[in-house]
Amino acid sequence: MNSNNIRPLGPVVIDIENITKNYVMGEEVVHALRGVTLKIHRNEYIAIMGPSGSGKSTLMNMLGCLDTPTSGRYEFNGKSVAEMDDDELAAVRNREIGFVFQTFNLLPRSTSLRNVELPLIYAGIAPERRVERATQVLTDVGLGDRVHHKPNELSGGQRQRVAIARALVNGPSIILADEPTGNLDSKTGEEIMALLEDLYQHGNTIILVTHERDIAAHARRTVHLRDGLIEMDHAGFIPELDLAIESIPARSI
């Protein structure tokens, strides 16, 4: 299904070259990324796959500007991220990246509207404009009638929709979804994937981090990570190939 409707690529959004990330755990240095090079264009729909311990989460944190690499080059929209300070990183996360988490990460005591408003507050948008924009985006994801509901009054799928609306609200360059269906049943998961597909068709750039093949199969490009390196990077999802790669056990580091 996904080999159809491939949208033409836009300019490069993410350009990383040979980045590494080391963590010091006690006496030991963990090499989470050992030199990853990757270019992601606007209008791409890319899945990053890999078993746990492959460096998948580290790469996602790096792409999401939550963390900076130990070495290597990272340019986001042509701007070098490696040298940004905390506040500059916060600004990039606010305006350029929309996060969708596995656990939704909504503020439990705030309504859908307040949750979606949050990135707009941090961007310094005026109150009336915020409500207008947040309501619009909530309506776009199909929650026009759930604006004043709190997360505990919503189903899992609706919660994830609120989270997606929150990710979209500042019109980011990329949407970074980390196991977006991990906490949902398969039917609801499919609905969320349909929403992401819809967003892709409307010109959004989507980066999907997952270890589930069914989910990765929605993307137009698949990147396999293993032991902190890119093992394979190819267009589409080739069931035989991708299944084979994913079934190789991780090397113990």
Binding site: D87, A90, R93, N94, R95, F99, N105, L107, L118
Partner: peptide, 16 residues
């Protein structure tokens, strides 16, 4: 703590 993490991911600065 997790909420603080979420807020930071959404663009809250240290000052915020």
């Amino acid at each position: 703590t997790k909420e603080i993490g979420t807020r930071k991911a959404l663009g809250a600065r240290r000052r915020t």
